[in-house]
Design a protein around this nucleic acid. Structure first.
Length: 563
RNA sequence: CGGGGUGUGGCGCAGUUUGGUAGCGCGCGUCGUUCGGGACGACGAGGCCCUGGGUUCAAGUCCCAGCACCCCGACCA
């Protein structure tokens, strides 16, 4: 491609509305064009990179036994009503001319499960891995960071269907391996972390994370044993507070004491010897959540403990209407209100907790002697430095970009849609499902976040839009023009993808644009080099340039591009 | 959805306080000079000043309403 003909211009000045490096560089290099909030056009250069990424994904999916297909973006809303997911994603909804409700699909479990139901009639038809690469729509509350979080995006979504859990494990492992291959081929160092499965559902899920300060996710890592988890899922070892023999309940007057810090200070006890009460609304129902005072509630764990309901903090009005005394509340003596307790209430004794009476607290509160919980499980929020649950060494936190997510979904959709099959004993069993997603555009953005320097992108060869930036200096000089044209043709004849900078621009502009886009190899044809019948060769990832004889340039480029 | 901010040639911005002929830099066009790290000179093109309403002799500027976009928090590939 001749740059003089390329659609898309580079910008000399920094675009104003771009915080992330990848966003800035993509705008400056003319890779993307913003159409609306969270909606972008891919310019020719970006589109080439994205197609390369897609092709890598496709090859690895096929190698793992996947079959590519294509499902519609436009779907009847009833399907989503049937699976109960109309609220799970930020669905784009629209009406057709007969006033029927349709959605623009954010993912395809519903459609594919119904398709599988219609086409799988026996255990002999399983297992299956089906996938597509296609545009998804999600009305994100807040798009951000260029291609990092958008409302319309291309995703590779794969789905596995197995006869049992063992089969699911195999499919899942095959997908995990395929994902590792994909990231490796894209030059990305992704790590695998335990994750919450969110609106997709299912028990186990893992995310592929690219560690980057600009990432939206917080990851807990244990450098000793390798435990890694998203903050929303991370577990940790809760220290046991010294356990004395239970003593009788005792009410204490605590005027003006509202917070755990107030309380611990007022009674001169560590926060770990107190119990905190927090109030949530699950629909119209008030839920009392109790956790040891030195810990905080992880709302995602809490939501899961309650079966995935939507949650929000209760307002002061709702709290008082439920008969609860904010600042002096606890689960002790409550009736008619559901209580969820973190398992930390078992790790200690003789706690201080609210007396459910204004300005009074109770000493020596013990579980389960003094209060019961409808649900007791881990709902605590991990924090930097907390101890690893496995090996008890301190964990560290890092920021990261989620570039893939795999789920062991189980039977959530096969049961919702009645996708079952007769096994060898002619017993009807629900199909066991797994889901596997990679955001293509986000992968490109993440790659740029991970591979750039002060001058621009340093793109991995496998996903760079072209292999070579062929830079001709002084194109008015007929010798230069002829040598560069000849080299351009020779490289292309050899199958090298060349971006040929044939513009009548100054050297500085050309070198800077070459650095900005960051193709793996840069060739310079100039009068100076031509005097020695040579061409300059430089890798974007290295500082030093070398010269090679003109007639050996193609071979040298080949060598450099062959891994 | 809550909080903060911004809308002025393709891009980056000034002008709004105190109403009075719409400016600067980059980029773009033509000509000339220059020619290995964002060259120089001359001439030139390009703007419903986000939209609608209002105030006024007069609105980019003041008032009202709306829209869009960005950033910070609750969501996800």
């Amino acid at each position: 491609m001749r740059i003089s003909k390329l659609f898309g211009k580079t910008l000399r000045e920094e675009p104003a509305e771009a915080e992330l490096v990848s966003h800035r560089l993509m705008l400056r290099a003319g890779l993307i064009y913003q159409v609306s909030s969270g909606v972008y056009s891919y310019m020719p250069l970006a589109w080439r990179s994205l197609r390369k990424i897609e092709q890598i994904i496709r090859e690895e999916m096929d190698a793992a036994g996947g079959q590519e297909l294509r499902m519609p973006v436009l779907q009847p809303r009833e399907l989503w009503v049937e699976s109960g997911r109309t609220e799970a994603f930020d669905l784009f909804t629209l009406q057709d001319r007969r006033d029927r409700s349709l959605v623009l699909a954010p993912t395809h479990e519903e459609v594919l499960t119904t398709m599988v139901k219609a086409n799988v009639h026996s255990y002999r038809d399983l297992p299956l891995i089906l996938y597509q690469i296609q545009t998804k729509f999600r009305d994100e509350p807040r798009p951000r960071g260029g291609l990092l979080r958008v409302r319309e995006f291309d995703m590779k979504d794969a789905y596995s269907f197995d006869i049992d859990e063992e089969g699911l494990d195999l499919s899942y492992q095959a997908m995990v391996q395929a994902y590792k291959n994909i990231y490796a081929r894209c030059g990305l160092a992704a790590i695998i972390v335990e994750a919450d499965s969110g609106p997709i559902g299912g028990k186990d899920s893992q995310e592929f994370i690219l560690l980057a300060e600009s990432g939206e996710d917080t990851i807990f890592l244990c450098e000793s044993c390798g435990y890694a988890a998203n903050a929303e899922r991370a577990v940790f070892a809760k220290p046991e507070i010294d356990r004395t023999a239970p003593e009788p309940l005792e009410e204490v007057h605590t005027p003006g004491v509202k917070t755990i810090e107030d309380l611990a200070g007022f009674l001169d006890v560590p926060t770990g010897r107190t119990l905190k009460a927090v109030f949530y609304m699950a629909g119209d129902e008030v839920i009392v959540v109790t956790i040891r005072g030195d810990l905080d509630v992880n709302e995602i764990k809490l939501r899961n403990a309650l079966g995935g309901v939507g949650l929000r903090l209760a307002s002061p009005k709702e709290v008082s209407e439920a008969g609860l005394v904010a600042g002096s509340a606890s689960a002790v003596g409550l009736s008619g209100i559901r209580v969820v307790a973190d398992d930390s209430v078992k790790l200690g004794a003789n706690f201080v907790a609210g007396a459910n009476r204004q300005d009074y607290h109770l000493r020596n509160v013990n579980f389960p002697r003094d209060f019961k919980a409808d649900v007791i499980t881990d709902i605590a929020l991990a924090r930097e430095g907390y101890l690893c649950a496995r090996c008890h060494d301190p964990m560290v936190t890092r920021r990261g970009i989620e570039v893939g997510h795999v789920f062991k979904v189980g039977t959530r959709y096969s049961e919702a849609f009645g996708a079952a099959f007769p096994d060898e004993s002619d017993v009807q069993r629900p199909i066991i499902m797994g889901c596997y997603g990679i955001g293509v555009g986000r992968l490109l953005a993440a790659a740029i976040e991970q591979h750039h320097d002060d001058n621009g992108m340093v793109l991995p060869a496998s996903i760079a839009p072209y292999d070579v930036w062929l830079l001709a200096l002084n194109v008015e000089n007929p010798d230069v023009a002829q040598a560069a044209d000849t080299l351009y043709e020779a490289l292309r004849d050899d199958g090298v993808q060349v971006l040929y900078d044939d513009r009548k621009e100054s050297a500085g502009v050309k070198f800077n644009d070459a650095d900005l886009l960051g193709l793996p190899v840069r060739l310079v044809v100039s009068p100076r080099n031509l005097r020695q019948q040579a061409v300059e060769v430089k890798l974007r990832s290295e500082d030093q340039a070398a010269t090679v004889a003109l007639d050996q340039a193609v071979g040298r480029v080949r060598e450099l591009l062959t891994p």
